[in-house]
Simulated scan of single mutants.
Amino acid sequence: MLVISSFEQSTSLEIAIANLEQNGINKTKILAVPFEKRREEKKLFDSIHRSDGVSLFDIAAALGTACSVLGASFGFILKWGPIIWGLLGLAIGAIIGFIIDYFYTKKKTKKQEKVPDSFSEVVLIVDCEDTLGEKVENIL
């Protein structure tokens, strides 16, 4: 029977492993795999091969569309016409949206950097007999 569990690295985990060894589980049947949390620097633009899940074009597209519609609507009244004012509204809205999203993302990443991620996660795999399975689960 395989018992798989996940823990944060701590002294309690070390005590649990020692307790498993005292209860008849051989060291060769216990596998502890540490996972270090890597911190990648957020990049401004995504590529085809890499994406960090942060998009700077969501608000830019929404504001660009809204300002484009407003510019085209008011362009029927204004001198340059609806097409020019629609394009100007698109450009102005997209730039404002991009700036808002850029500073919001920058502020958000600064908050995340303040939270320490010094601990690492450990996956523990224990290969034991079916009779010891419940005992292993209780120890873990």
Rank of each mutant, 00 (worst) to 15 (best):
L2V: 10
V3G: 05
S5D: 14
E14N: 13
E14F: 04
A18H: 08
L20H: 02
E21I: 14
N23M: 09
G24H: 00
N26V: 14
T28Y: 01
I30M: 09
I30E: 04
V33E: 11
P34W: 00
F35S: 15
K37A: 15
R38P: 01
R38H: 12
R39L: 03
R39F: 11
R39A: 12
E40A: 12
E41R: 07
K42W: 03
F45W: 14
D46V: 03
D46H: 14
I48T: 12
I48Y: 13
R50K: 10
S55H: 11
L56D: 02
F57Q: 08
A60T: 00
A62Q: 03
G64Y: 05
T65S: 12
A66L: 14
A66K: 13
C67V: 05
S68G: 13
F74G: 11
F74A: 09
G75I: 06
W80L: 14
P82M: 06
I84G: 05
I84M: 13
G93P: 08
A94W: 01
I95T: 07
I95P: 01
I96P: 06
F98P: 04
I99M: 13
Y102Q: 05
F103Y: 13
F103E: 12
K107E: 10
T109Y: 02
V115P: 03
D117V: 13
F119P: 06
V122W: 03
V123K: 10
V123L: 07
I125K: 05
E129Q: 05
D130A: 05
L132D: 00
L132K: 02
G133P: 00
G133I: 01
K135N: 01
V136Y: 00
V136F: 01
E137R: 08
E137N: 08
N138Y: 06
L140T: 02
L140P: 00
